[in-house]
């Protein structure tokens, strides 16, 4: 038993230190790394509590996916351009404090209530073992009692996916624009998606000429061809946003 307590102590201390690191680190990437460490330690604590399924979900969903999203956001944000990130705005600070206190209160209330009423008598350790284990019990409860909530969540996720697709779609999908964008993104574009673009070759070529991508044309396979190396490097995609008189 003492080994268990020792391991728990190590995990708990590291989790708390890492959690402090999340809010104290100056660099957002360091915060994200500290968050990963916190999550992994929490997962290990769940394993020690015989909540293996919860631990696996913690690893997969939180550590694996959500933090990848955080890292993505951080890749797209320049750290030096974020003066407000260091908490200069007093209104923001007050709000953060209030929300933090509210969350802390909620967690404390949940823990206190639980210790007041005692452990649940429906799902005791024996009952879970009888039903076949953690994953089985969670599955049974989720897909019987909470089936409506599951379905609503699923629809919500679907809406989120569709919204992401709509956001990722080009705002103006007129043909000249698409021809220009095709020329900007890839020199060997896959067939299919842009066949329409390739079919509208003369008009598209005109548009791409106006967009300073001279020497670029499409052949009938939808592959974009360039006349020479200069035409290749002159495309804006390779030079970023070109300024007037840049050359």
């Amino acid at each position: 038993m003492s080994t268990e307590v020792l391991v728990f102590d190590i995990l708990a201390v590291v989790a708390v230190i890492a959690a402090l690191g999340v809010i104290l680190a100056r660099n957002p990437v360091h915060s994200a790394v500290a968050l990963i460490v916190t999550f992994i330690n929490l997962a290990a604590i769940f394993v020690m509590l015989h909540a293996e399924f919860l631990a696996a979900v913690q690893l997969l969903v939180y550590t694996g996916a959500v933090t990848v999203l955080i890292v993505f956001v951080i890749f797209l944000v320049k750290v030096d351009d974020l003066p407000e990130f260091y908490g200069g705005n007093p209104v923001q600070r007050i709000f953060a404090l209030l929300i933090g206190l509210a969350l802390l209160g909620e967690v404390a209330a949940a823990i206190l209530t639980r210790s007041a009423i005692g452990a649940s008598d429906i799902w005791t350790a024996e009952a879970i073992a009888d039903a076949g284990g953690n994953a089985e019990v969670i599955g049974q409860v989720l897909y019987s009692e909470y089936v409506l909530a599951i379905q609503i969540t699923a629809v919500l996720l679907l809406v989120g996916t569709v919204a992401a697709l709509v956001l990722a779609r080009p705002a103006s999908a007129t043909l000249p624009d698409r021809v220009k964008r095709t020329g900007l993104i890839s020199l060997a574009h896959p067939r299919g998606a842009d066949r329409e673009v390739a079919a509208a070759l003369p008009a598209g070529l005109e548009a791409s000429r106006r967009g300073e991508t001279s020497g670029v044309r499409f052949d009938d396979r939808g592959v974009i061809l360039v006349d020479n190396a200069e035409a290749f490097t002159d495309q804006t995609a390779w030079g970023g946003d070109r300024l007037e008189g840049d050359d």
Binding site: L59, L60, T63
Partner: peptide
């Protein structure tokens, strides 16, 4: 009991 999920989680 959920080793297969752990495998995927650790690799992520």
């Amino acid at each position: 009991s959920v080793a297969a999920l752990f495998v995927i989680g650790i690799s992520s």
